[in-house]
Design a protein around this nucleic acid. Sequence first.
DNA 1: CCGTGGTAACTTACTCCCGAGTCATATCCC
DNA 2: GGGATATGACTCGGGAGTAAGTTACCACGG
Lengths: 201, 201
Amino acid sequence: MAAGTKGVARAEREAQIVEVACRVFGEHGYAATSVADVAAAAGISKPLIYQYFGSKDGLYVAALRAAAAVLVGEIERTAALGAVGIDRAVVTLDGMFRVLADRPWLWRLVFDATAPREGEVAAVLAEHEQRLVVLGSDGVGDLLALVGNTDPDDLSALRAVWENTFRTLVGWWLDHPDVTPEAMSARCQRLFAVVLSGSVP
Amino acid sequence: MAAGTKGVARAEREAQIVEVACRVFGEHGYAATSVADVAAAAGISKPLIYQYFGSKDGLYVAALRAAAAVLVGEIERTAALGAVGIDRAVVTLDGMFRVLADRPWLWRLVFDATAPREGEVAAVLAEHEQRLVVLGSDGVGDLLALVGNTDPDDLSALRAVWENTFRTLVGWWLDHPDVTPEAMSARCQRLFAVVLSGSVP
DNA sequence: CCGTGGTAACTTACTCCCGAGTCATATCCC
DNA sequence: GGGATATGACTCGGGAGTAAGTTACCACGG
């Protein structure tokens, strides 16, 4: 490949690289992805990525910010709809299924267990996590308030359970690509109803 | 350090290495742990580990088997007690808290997201996961049967939710080392009661 | 209209480091 | 001597990051 410019402006090239990086990082995970992999997938060379993003983590942060803007933004959007209880849960999940339908890799990118736990990446992850904690505590808090429970540790634990339930249901859906968002939302509604029906001894 | 024997028999040395490996792998994760780290922690040299376990994965498999024997064994033990519904959940969690109290690192070892997804390690992980799936489907199946739901995908998804709820509660507890097993079991019972009370709109 | 120099876009071909895995050798005990 | 236990000092590969050079475009003076 010749060394010279291809006439692609920096902003445009950066956007293209970020999009490719979202996909590659999301599909294979941070640890298993090399900068050379992303460069190859984008049809460019490694040093260009370093010139534009500085480091592997810099690239990852850019991809993470782009993905989180979509996903956390969607969660905040549905939260603002004002549904409560089961309805709020189902509406939130339904919105997520629709957003992920044509770019499912964004999910694994944002919740990548192999991402570094320190440095700028960790800071960005913590920032998004904090937004989710606020939203989750809100919904779960209503539930605890109904029974007069004000223990902060109970709230913290139950919020964690809810977040992981959310993650698990989305993860299950991603593992079953034949299931439509509509069918999956219906399944969630059904399962919540079973659990919350109080039919357990 | 002199090269000669220290008079430690192979079986004894292997047991010691496995114990140390459980701790180091469990505390830092598979990916972030080098064989040299384990050797240093055990007070021996790297080639001895290779002589006894063949490879990093071989060592990891040995540690995994030892840890899973304890943890999955405990889950199977409590499952055999015959409790149902919330009681079964609480009994299972309670047993786990007690087992983990003096060696909490075993948990992160068995559920390490940075462990390889292929090769012998993956096979061993899948084997233990399968045992958990059987147990989880059992408990969750009762719940669905009560409302006449026989959809296998509903069972699969709800089982996944339960397993992750379990993992989340244990993980939360590990992040709050001041909470005693007794207090944590009480918290779980309380939270289950809230959710299953059907008090949601 | 035609250089011509400056700048932005881009690549080849490296260095460097870290961790997995190995080889040759040393010590101890029977 | 011989086998089991042990280690220092390597090789090797892969991925992060870099140095130096190449090509295209564009603004300007002639």
